[in-house]
């Protein structure tokens, strides 16, 4: 009989602890917050940028960027990164005395125009220039520019974006 009472009390207490009412839910308020721990770290450095070509003549093609200013532009996936990453690139049109379309620019993984990784610069992220890159990796990109004929003299500038996402995630 004594044992039965003890078991009953323990059981009832357990039931009451298990079914603690959710008053926040009842009032329609409440929010959840994340904890401190982080599971994904993506840490990228860019060096040998900004990309620059110096003075170029109109009507010339595949002008390689200046040394260490796009020849190459270096992307480092730092050692704090804990996932493999895909790297995408996009850019804007050049603005200056007139507009120069973004597709006058190409980038590559070597300093020779053409080949497998020869890619035209676009205003949206399309295909990754580097895929499944592990942490602690250095990748070089080489930049080429065509100058349209009869382009008015002046300074032209644009912005180039380097995007790193977890491998397999859309940009």
């Amino acid at each position: 009989m004594k044992k039965c009472h003890k078991a009953l009390i323990v059981g009832l207490l357990a039931v009451s602890m298990l079914f603690t009412p959710n008053l926040a839910g009842a009032t329609g308020e409440g929010s959840t917050t994340s904890t401190f721990s982080v599971s994904v770290v993506i840490d990228i450095s860019l060096s040998h940028v900004p990309i620059a070509w110096g003075t170029l003549a109109p009507g010339t093609t595949n002008n390689l960027a200046l040394s260490n200013q796009g020849n190459p532009a270096t992307i480092t996936v730092e050692q704090t990164t804990n996932v493999n990453v895909d790297i995408y690139i996009k850019g804007d049109d050049w603005t200056g005395p007139t507009t120069v379309a973004v597709d006058n620019c190409h980038y590559d993984t070597d300093n020779t125009p053409g080949g497998d990784n020869w890619t035209v610069l676009t205003t949206t992220y399309t295909t990754p220039i580097f895929e499944n890159v592990p942490p602690n990796t250095v990748k070089d990109t080489y930049w080429f520019l065509d100058v349209p004929t009869a382009l008015p003299a002046g300074d032209y500038s644009n912005t180039i974006y380097f995007k790193a996402v977890r491998n397999g995630t859309p940009p």
Binding site: T32, S34, V38, D43, I44, L46, T80, T81
Partner: peptide
């Protein structure tokens, strides 16, 4: 030599959200 670095750390999973409530997560 300028070095342009940016690191981002975050939780891969977002906390469950109850209907009618909101949820938060932090990017460091």
């Amino acid at each position: 030599e300028p070095r342009y670095n940016l690191g981002a750390a975050y939780n891969e999973t977002f906390p469950q959200i109850e209907q009618g409530a909101s949820g938060t997560s932090i990017i460091y």
